[in-house]
Design a protein around this nucleic acid. Structure first.
Lengths: 347, 347
DNA sequence: ATGAAAGCGCTAACAC
DNA sequence: GTGTTAGCGCTTTCAT
């Protein structure tokens, strides 16, 4: 024990099997079967394979990469990988990528475009074959540059308006409208929205949806969207206090994080839900789920997000030579209503 | 646009600066400053650096790795990266690793030792310099083999009994005892534990802590630990029904996942907390936090988990030559009590 | 203080 | 069908 066992290389296999390293390489890459133009004797191939097996041969990815430029590695950059929504998607992507023999590198921007740029640089040095990105504010020029190089790239969750980039997003406008409608149907009128000040496509569209729903229901006069800076979430308390005075009845939270902050603040004030305020939000969490805090949540198809993004990326990696075809996948939201009369917790 | 701009290599820099590639390499690796034995003319070094900057040189990690065997990449394998506890730790490790110029590869075992083995193989082919692992059942032989090769390895959250491996774990026994004690102090007597059947060091120790606390408080006769298979969580409902009949008063849940399952099942039965049952658990979540569902939670020092594990690993990578020093870091739990009299939600 | 050169392990074009 | 060989970009020893 403690001995370093030297790594087995194709050279060792070649020697052991009494063939050339080229043959080993072909066999190990499955290029021995007709198509590639190279046909290796069936028995020879079998012998090579068995020797490789016996010696427990593991190809050296660095060498392969240096030579072929292919790494079978992709990068996934999200806002915050510890955020449940992104963590779940990341997990789906990882599992699916693994099946395709790809390894995934993860990174978080914390909504900072400088970090995004750094991460992309690091990842590219690692030789990733492609990239899935949740763009943050200010990401546009960075991503455009990538696209101009024809680098395989897929946007997730948010888009870069005006850029021809493949993306997988939710129909946020519809989701925003439908979730607002739940409140309207329940008879609330003074419904306001709590949102981020960040200029992100998904947020803007959710706001659009809210606004449209309100207007269509003749509640245009009550439309009001509060914009929070994500680094100044504490401001939410004063917004809520003010809202309470203005007798606002319900809120649409543009993200789960906002909703969690909001509900926490509401409880801290001694107010209750839905006694003092009603609410709906995007995505769910243990609290809203278990206690039916929200009147409704937008449920996003996590698995499809991951699957579609990865498939799109792999396709784009496969066809790097051809001029990039840009596909836009728009997923449908599902509205989960927590009917208060079904609630475990009688009000 | 659309043009592939060929990657800049040290060769380009050398040509542009009118020096040899060796010199460029030295300068880029900071080995020009006295110590390495190689001293490069200050002006030459400056010239090289400025050319590299101007051409936006990015070293090719694959080449470097092939040549030097060092990748500046580590692997982190947990049970499930989408689990909040692990996602949070992963994020800490990633951030900290990044500062040390390391990249992190993540993987999930789903408590399956076969997956663990596969992941380790894939990661090793990628040439990772070291590994942080949350061992699952059956991981022992796999990890021992790694250790025998003197491969830099740090265990996280759980240990492999009897193996001399570095690890960062919680004082689970103490945590289990202290959190049980909260219930005892509140006057509950028929306190049972809901745990996993998996043979994991952390789980076993939490059970120990519960048992010890009960015994010390003269409640030994009530000690009862229910073991659930993690793939048969639905069984929890019948356990709860039975417990209700036996007039069990409170539960200690061995993990947050178990607690969430348990509380969900309790609510489904129309029972309430703490009216019908009281509970304590490990880690927290939005629901327990917001609604003070649990009487108390064990709070684990997430950041320290990540930091200690990474530091230990980096140290072990640095000293690969020396016989592995095995360090065991045991972190202290913190008990967060949700005093029901402070609760926002009057019972 | 600087340069020449030998590979790391692998792929793929080409020769036999 | 199989073998030979030229690098991929980099680090590092040894000359100069």
């Amino acid at each position: 024990m403690g001995e370093r066992t030297r790594k087995i290389t194709i050279k060792d296999i070649a020697a052991e099997a009494g063939v050339s390293i080229a043959l080993v390489s072909f066999v190990m890459n499955g290029k021995s079967d007709g198509k590639g133009g190279y046909r290796v004797n069936k028995e020879t191939a079998e012998r090579i394979r068995s020797v490789a097996e016996r010696l427990n041969y593991q190809p050296n990815d660095a060498a392969r990469m240096l030579r072929s430029g292919k790494t079978n590695t992709i990068g996934v950059i999200v806002s915050d990988i510890s955020n449940k929504f992104f963590a779940d998607i990341a997990r789906c992507i990882e599992d699916r990528a693994y099946k395709h023999k790809y390894t995934v590198l993860f990174g978080s921007t914390d909504e900072n475009s400088q970090k995004l740029e750094n991460l992309i640089e690091v990842f590219r040095n690692k030789g990733i074959d492609g990239l899935i990105v949740v763009p943050c504010e200010g990401a546009d020029p960075i991503l455009r540059k990538l696209a101009d190089e024809n680098f395989p790239l897929v946007l997730l969750d948010r888009e870069v308006p005006g850029a021809d980039l493949s993306s997988v997003v939710l129909n946020n406008r519809r989701a925003g409208g439908q979730v607002t409608e739940v409140l309207v149907k329940q008879g609330y009128r003074k419904i306001e929205m709590i949102s981020y000040s960040m200029n992100l496509s998904n947020i803007r569209e959710r706001e659009e949806g809210y606004r449209a729903c309100m207007t269509e229901n003749g509640l245009g006069e009550y439309v009001r969207i509060h914009h929070l800076r994500h680094d100044r979430m504490d401001r939410i308390t004063e917004i809520l206090r003010d809202a309470r005075e203005r007798q606002v009845e319900a809120f649409v939270f543009a993200t789960n994080t906002l909703a969690l902050q909001g509900v926490t603040a509401i409880f801290r004030q001694g107010w209750q839900i839905p006694r003092d305020f009603s609410m709906v939000c995007f995505d769910t969490n243990e609290a809203f789920d278990l206690y039916k805090t929200a009147a409704a949540c937008v449920s996003q198809p996590i698995e499809r997000f991951g699957a579609e993004a990865l498939d799109l990326l792999l396709k784009s990696i496969e066809h790097r030579d051809q001029p990039m075809a840009c596909t836009r996948v728009v997923l449908s939201p599902e509205i989960v209503e927590y009917n208060k009369f079904d609630s475990y917790h009688k009000n």
